[in-house]
């Protein structure tokens, strides 16, 4: 290791005095281990919230409901208010100038713009 790396103590030491079980003891080297953690979705599923009274707050039911306000439509490219939307690309645009740009965009960019508001075509 380079001296400046050692001086900055960049690398976490493998043995730490204050630990009862060291990292290398917990996860021995060269031993393959499957995924030992759950994603949030799996965690929530395992919580079995349906078994508890619905008025008891939990991670799932404290989520906000969908917005009641009408969604303001903005131009995907410029961010201006967008009165129009292009039926071919589904992009929203503010004026003729932007429309020209929209029509000249390669499909990859169109999809990326759509993906920003989660409206892109997803092939599964």
């Amino acid at each position: 290791m380079e001296p400046e790396v050692i001086e900055a103590e960049l690398v976490l030491p493998t043995h730490l005095r204050f630990k009862r079980i060291q990292m290398y003891e917990k996860y021995p080297k060269g031993q393959s281990r499957g995924r030992h953690w759950k994603h949030l979705k799996q965690i929530i599923q395992a919580e079995n919230y349906q078994n508890y009274p619905p008025d008891e707050p939990n991670y799932v039911n404290i989520e906000s409901p969908p917005s009641m306000h009408p969604c303001k439509k903005i131009c995907d490219i410029t961010g201006y208010e967008a009165p129009y939307s292009d039926p071919r690309t589904n992009l929203r645009y503010a004026n003729a100038e932007v429309f020209k740009l929209v029509r000249s965009l390669p499909n990859e960019f169109v999809q990326r713009y759509l993906a920003q508001r989660n409206a892109a075509v997803v092939l599964k």
């Binding site: 906000s64 409901p65 969908p66 917005s67 009641m68 306000h69 969604c71 920003q116 508001r117």
Partner: peptide
């Protein structure tokens, strides 16, 4: 406006009401 990035939930101001 979380809608703009495809999250269909209430925004900051509405959350207070909720």
């Amino acid at each position: 406006r979380p809608n703009w990035i495809g999250i269909d939930q209430a925004g900051l101001d509405e959350m207070a009401g909720v």
